[in-house]
Design a protein around this nucleic acid. Sequence first.
DNA 1: TTGAGTGCAAATCCTTTGCAGGCGG
DNA 2: CCGCCTGCAAAGGATTTGCACTCAA
Lengths: 154, 154
Amino acid sequence: MTTDDKTEELLQRLRDKGFRITSQRETVIRIFQENKEKHLSAEDVYEILSKSNEAISLATTYRTLRMLVDMNVLRELDFAETHKHYELIDENEAPHHHIICLDCNHTIEFENDEINELGKKIAKQYNVDIVDMQFQIFGKCPSIPKDDNRKHRH
Amino acid sequence: MTTDDKTEELLQRLRDKGFRITSQRETVIRIFQENKEKHLSAEDVYEILSKSNEAISLATTYRTLRMLVDMNVLRELDFAETHKHYELIDENEAPHHHIICLDCNHTIEFENDEINELGKKIAKQYNVDIVDMQFQIFGKCPSIPKDDNRKHRH
DNA sequence: TTGAGTGCAAATCCTTTGCAGGCGG
DNA sequence: CCGCCTGCAAAGGATTTGCACTCAA
């Protein structure tokens, strides 16, 4: 499936739920598709668009992100920071998990079926209807390339 | 080891690092020892103390929590809410993990050695010096008793 | 005695909301 | 044309910080 097909599929999902397709919403979805491997924050999205000629307000950015999370288009991620991060949910992919460096805030994504299976098993044990799961490993990375310059946490 | 012994051990750890032992710090540590099974927020701690005759300021509550996290006395927990939760780290216990109900915010703790082992293995694979790990399952609980009345998230 | 710790209030950061005008269906 | 969406600015919740005073060591 091409990116355009995927975009159209997501937009259709919004239409089906009675949401209107505005240029702001299309743009936010496109930003996440162009940054599949990243974990953008609201501020990140806002800044990317501010630099382009498709600027949208911070308020709309937040409103759109929340809506997309509710629509299961985006996943909200907690990295033990004061703000949240978001990523596209790809329903054909297994959930993936994160290693977060407490020194440089760099994150590594990894997939691990054993963990996903364990998660499902445990949820079933407790009779919980699973919506999402996240395994986070917090540590110090001696060797991760420091390719971002976000504020340090400590 | 009795609770008093444990308290003394923790206080000694602060002394060793050059921190002063104030009544406020002793009190906060005691609150967590008296609520081992809970995941108190800063506001929770502040409120518990406000009702007693050992009230401390919110600012000091936050400063103390941060210090205790840095000292590895408390673990900071993210439950996809706007505020953080904290719990005592018991070094004799294996890490435990959480199921969080997105409807009622109730949390269930569970332990699972397979997950802990997997976490260690993965960290090693990525050459990361592991500090902590958390596995979180987000879902809807059909059967969990709703024994708390915190604000709902959605 | 003295500087780390405290309380208070103000500041800050991230996010949400009220309202008036704009535009998608 | 109707009412959902937007932008703006103001409000809000959680946490941090500046400053003068207090008290543990």
